[in-house]
């Protein structure tokens, strides 16, 4: 960095500190006029990032109420000041902030995770999923090793996780036309799968094993690894056969839902 840029960098760093932190000292030589102007910039910054969070997490805001959401948003932007050029990115990690702040209501963090995953899916790269029939034709001559080594590429920004609450019910109850956000009802582990179907982000509640299988293969596990994962420790022949059938069912489901982009053996 040149001396010219270095001097300016110091000025801008001090300015930014004053925006992010009310308690930060104003740059040297500033008077009341600059302090009044800085108050406007601080206000602009806060309303911009708070509005961005409210826009990205409309359902979470409705679920917890305006005051609680505002407090959570303030906490989030103080602990995670934005660094990316797109303001929407300030929502990254908001589910973790919700997990920290709404410890007695863990469904809040799950709901925030789902909203973020849906938002991410909405702007994923356009893609043509692999037709199930095309995979069926290509795999008709697979040898055992081909199946064992089979790896899948899923559609961009598809994701899955395990949750403990009825997110589908909570999500529906928070539709704009609904007046009564649902209290979390039945608890118990289930999986959530998020992807974009055409232009529409969508999610599906699935079995926990299915979600774990999806995550494993998304992280590079082969189809053979998947069968081993589903068969458990020290499996006998029947367990392996059952695991293979289960894996086949999952693969069919992913293909039919349009989640598979490509494969390799």
């Amino acid at each position: 960095m040149s001396d010219t840029a270095s001097d300016l960098a110091e000025t801008q760093a001090a300015f930014m500190r004053a925006i992010l932190d009310d308690g930060a000292p104003l740059p040297a030589g500033w008077g009341n006029r600059q302090a009044a102007g800085m108050a406007v910039y601080r206000g602009n910054y806060r309303s911009a990032v708070m509005d961005a969070l409210a826009s990205s997490f409309e359902r979470t805001a409705r679920y917890v109420g305006d005051d609680a959401f505002r407090q959570a948003s303030m906490h989030h932007v103080i602990s995670h000041p934005p660094s990316h050029w797109t303001i929407e990115a300030v929502g990254a990690g908001f589910d973790a902030t919700c997990a920290e702040l709404f410890g007695d209501n863990p469904e809040v963090a799950e709901l925030a995770w789902l909203e973020w995953a849906m938002l991410e899916a909405s702007s994923a790269a356009d893609h043509e999923p692999l037709p199930a029939a095309e995979f069926a034709a290509a795999s008709a001559d697979f040898a055992d090793d081909d199946w064992a080594n089979l790896k899948l590429t899923f559609t961009p920004r598809s994701t899955a996780r395990i949750v403990e609450h009825d997110l589908a019910g909570i999500w529906r109850s928070l539709d704009a036309e609904s007046d009564n956000p649902a209290a979390p009802s039945e608890q118990g582990q289930r999986g959530v799968l998020v992807w974009r179907e055409g232009e529409t982000p969508t999610f599906l509640i699935i079995a926990p094993d299915n979600a774990r299988a999806f995550m494993a293969m998304q992280n590079g596990a082969s189809y053979g690894d998947l069968i081993g994962l589903l068969a458990g420790d020290n499996p006998d022949g029947e367990a392996i056969q059952n695991a293979a059938m289960k894996a086949g069912g999952m693969l069919g489901e992913w293909l039919n839902e349009g989640l598979v982009l490509a494969f390799e053996t």
Binding site: T4, A5, Q12, M16, Y41, Y45, P82, S83, H84, W85
Partner: peptide
């Protein structure tokens, strides 16, 4: 304007010092 430092982004259109140094940058 400027909106960011190497660490953070204000998402606001912040004013430039009106100096020869800033002009060169």
């Amino acid at each position: 304007c400027w909106t960011r430092t190497s660490a953070h982004n204000s998402h606001d259109l912040l004013p430039m010092p009106l100096s020869e140094q800033a002009l060169q940058v």
